[in-house]
Amino acid sequence: MKLQHYLGGLEGLPEITTLEKRVFVEGWEKRIFGIHVAMMGLSNHLGSALPGYPIDEVPTTFKDEWTWADLRTGAEAMNPFDYFKYRYYEKWLGGITQFFIDKGYVTEEELTARMAEPAPTETETKPQIDDQVIAYLRNGDSPRRDVAHPKFAVGERVRVTNVPAGSHTRLPGYLRGRVGTIERIFEGDYAYFVHTGDGIGDPMPVYAVAFDPVEIWGPRAEPGPETLYAELYEAYLEPTKEQS
């Protein structure tokens, strides 16, 4: 498991010396945010998404799928030393750049050549592309695909699985193997737009699970009536031994 998947349970991390409050620190960060938004609004999975989008009618040369899951995969797949060295949008830039290289939209040589050129000016886009991206920004893409079909019930004790983590996971490392109680079952079966290889991707129930801090941190947990809650996909949960 990569270090960036385990931060919630680590101790002794360096104290934060600066807390940047600006959303964008440099001008290029706005551009990479805009590129990401356009990629999401033109992703080919929107043809079967909810609500329906006429993506096949949009005259774009972008013919691949791009979601938040793809962005997170690109960032979390980085070497841990690089992951903690770069700022937020620098990770975005690295993930998006590698995606375009891997998919053949641009080569490393072309990128190197463009870096020596002046900053690009604004270019016009086709109205259909603008309309599609704006519609996506307004309506989004719901991951809900059905009513919930839960395997576990409210009040049931469950153990968090310890499935192998690939380049991206939605399971916090510090919860692996811990036992909690189902507090809530969300109303639908929810898809995760990318199959991460650790069990999620297809629609499934999502639960709010309550954990006693002592279960997670042992005697080092701070005293008091505290509870930790985590929203977890069903694939990340299993019955405890007494219930199996």
Rank of each mutant, 00 (worst) to 15 (best):
K2L: 10
Q4K: 03
H5V: 05
H5F: 12
G9M: 02
L10M: 15
L13I: 07
P14L: 02
E15S: 12
T18R: 14
L19W: 11
L19E: 12
E20F: 02
K21H: 14
F24P: 05
W28C: 07
E29N: 03
K30H: 06
G34L: 09
H36N: 11
H36K: 11
V37A: 08
M40F: 06
G41V: 00
G41R: 00
L42F: 03
N44K: 12
N44G: 03
L46I: 01
G47E: 07
S48C: 07
A49V: 02
L50N: 09
Y53S: 05
T60Q: 00
T61C: 06
T61K: 13
W68F: 10
W68T: 08
A69T: 11
D70N: 15
T73C: 09
G74S: 08
G74V: 08
A75L: 13
M78R: 12
N79R: 10
P80G: 04
P80V: 00
F81Q: 15
D82L: 14
F84D: 03
R87Q: 10
Y88R: 12
K91Q: 09
L93A: 14
G94Q: 11
I96R: 06
T97F: 03
Q98M: 08
I101A: 03
D102R: 12
K103F: 03
V106Y: 01
V106F: 02
V106W: 02
V106G: 07
E109I: 04
E110D: 12
T112M: 09
T112P: 00
R114A: 15
T121M: 09
E122T: 11
T123N: 08
T123P: 02
P127F: 00
Q128M: 06
D130T: 14
D130F: 11
D131I: 04
I134H: 07
I134Y: 04
I134R: 13
R138M: 08
R138P: 00
N139D: 07
G140R: 06
D141M: 10
S142A: 13
R145P: 07
R145K: 15
A148H: 08
H149N: 14
K151G: 15
G155A: 03
E156L: 02
R159K: 15
T161I: 04
N162F: 04
N162I: 06
N162P: 04
P164M: 01
A165M: 14
G166E: 06
G166V: 07
T169D: 01
R170F: 09
R178A: 14
R178G: 05
R178C: 13
V179D: 05
V179E: 11
I182V: 15
I182F: 01
E183H: 15
E183V: 07
I185H: 06
G188K: 08
Y190V: 02
A191Y: 02
Y192P: 06
V194L: 15
H195Q: 14
G197F: 00
G197D: 02
D198E: 09
I200R: 13
I200M: 11
D202Q: 13
P203L: 01
M204W: 02
V209N: 03
F211R: 04
D212C: 05
D212L: 05
P213H: 07
P213Y: 05
P223R: 00
P225A: 10
L232F: 05
L237F: 05
P239C: 05
K241W: 08
K241V: 13
E242R: 08
E242A: 13
S244G: 15
S244L: 12
